[in-house]
């Protein structure tokens, strides 16, 4: 499952970052590391842009970037 498939309020554990460099390093440096929990706080109406929480930090990213992050959804 990918991060962009999560709904508002849902969370999951990051499994893998599929993005290529240099985006991958960027995502890593913002805290999207394997094993971290990520929670979708909000997304815009059309699900274009996401506001997520990783390790206590709020990050906005587009659907395209969220799609590059594989997660395992929490139950």
């Amino acid at each position: 499952m990918r991060l962009n498939e999560l709904n508002m309020g849902e969370s999951g554990i990051i499994k893998k970052i599929h993005a290529k460099e240099p985006l991958k390093s960027k995502l890593l440096s913002m805290g999207f590391a394997r094993g971290e929990r990520v929670k979708v706080l909000k997304h815009t109406l059309a699900k274009n842009t996401f506001d997520v929480d990783v390790n206590g930090i709020n990050i906005a990213l587009r659907e395209e970037e969220a799609r590059e992050i594989e997660v395992e959804k929490d139950n």
Partner: peptide, 11 residues
Amino acid sequence: EPEPFVMELPK
């Protein structure tokens, strides 16, 4: 490639 958009929302 379109420019990615990943941005911290500071407190």
